[in-house]
């Protein structure tokens, strides 16, 4: 049985997933959830696959109404989350009754929140992904009144002890800071910047309001390219740090054009890209030099944490009789049981 939800206030929200990994081969950016850890966590908490379609809510207030009973999980930026007017915890599965409104309002720490709906949302796919591509003009457009299909209905999970939270799954929530430290490995073209490359690590940078999913623009002391030779267009990784103009540093994020002719000074680590996804305009960033080996170790530690979360969620859902994510069985209506 499938359900629906209706967008009441879209704000700046999209239906997305982890990204279009087959895209870059064809000149399309990977796109997808900018804070990958939070998106994965939301889906795991909702009993979904990591890559299932979910909602990414950026900066602005968002409301949706459940037209059928749903199970959701909200992660990412910390904010007041209400369901049917009740305040509910983030980073935990939450039952939503048909007719209730889910509201995310007043986001002022962090920039992006994720709402996963158990059973995942229906969305059109391009090259195996529902992630919007603003350049090609692909993706579901959300507005007031948009109805989204959820593939499953989950009757309310009965909570025997009033006032106790339903779940305590013990995930370490990523911290959010107005002055985060961002890990960077040396870029393939760092030599082109000579001694000025060190500026990157000795200066703080301010996030510009012109930042978006394509890249963050940062103001501060800029390393300078020492040569002026024409650079042939090359594939650039997500996280590439470039100095395309005399005004700003550019850190490319998941919406980046796959090729460019600017030298790559450094590359932000996968873990720190999640942190940058939550950086708000005006926040101050410092960069810290790291190695690929160290960055890989940190990424793997975070992924193992998500694996542990998946195990806990499976256990808890199993005990509650909601069913294991691998083969969800629909609950009978709670009344009369």
């Amino acid at each position: 049985m499938s359900g629906t939800l209706t967008i009441q206030q879209a704000g700046h929200s999209v239906v997305t997933d982890l990204g279009r990994f087959k895209g870059p081969r064809y000149g399309l950016p990977v796109n997808g959830a900018l804070d990958q850890f939070s998106a994965r966590a939301a889906n795991i908490l909702a009993g979904n696959l990591d890559n299932d379609p979910l909602l990414e809510v950026t900066a602005l207030d968002f409301r949706m109404r459940a037209d059928s009973d749903l199970l959701i999980a909200v992660t990412g930026a910390p904010l007041p989350l209400t369901v049917g007017g009740r305040e509910c915890p983030q980073w935990e599965p939450v039952s939503v009754l048909a007719g209730e409104t889910v509201a995310l309002r007043g986001m002022n720490t962090g920039l992006r929140a994720y709402i996963a709906v158990h059973g995942a949302l229906d969305a059109p796919m391009l090259l195996g992904s529902c992630a919007p591509d603003t350049i090609v003009g692909f993706g579901l457009k959300l507005a007031e009144g948009t109805v989204l299909g959820a593939r499953k209905i989950v009757p309310p999970i009965r909570q025997p002890y009033f006032d106790l939270p339903l779940f305590r799954l013990g995930l370490t929530r990523p911290g959010t800071s107005a002055s985060p430290v961002i890990d960077v490995t040396d870029g393939p073209d760092i030599a082109e910047f000579g001694d000025t490359a060190d500026l990157l690590f000795n200066t703080s940078y301010t996030v510009s309001g012109r930042s978006n999913h394509i890249g963050l623009r940062l103001g501060g002391a800029l390393p300078e390219r020492q040569s002026t030779a024409e650079v042939l267009s090359r594939g650039v990784p997500v996280g590439a740090i470039e100095v395309p103009s005399r005004e700003e540093l550019l850190v490319l994020h998941r919406g980046r054009g796959v090729t460019a002719g600017y030298p790559v000074l450094g590359v932000v680590t996968s873990r720190s890209l999640d942190v940058l996804a939550q950086a708000r305009p005006g926040h101050t960033i410092r960069f810290r030099k790291t190695t690929v080996a160290e960055a890989t170790a940190r990424h793997r530690a975070a992924m193992r944490e998500l694996e542990a979360l998946r195990t806990s969620v499976n256990t808890v859902f199993g005990l509650l009789g909601v069913g294991a994510p691998a083969s969800w069985r629909e609950l009978l209506p709670a009344s009369g049981t």
Binding site: F21, K22, V30, L232, S233, R234, G235, P237, V258
Partner: peptide, 13 residues
């Protein structure tokens, strides 16, 4: 994930 070949280089993701 894939490879992005251009003129003289390829980015392997």
């Amino acid at each position: 994930h894939g490879a992005v070949p251009t003129y003289d280089s390829v980015l392997v993701e």
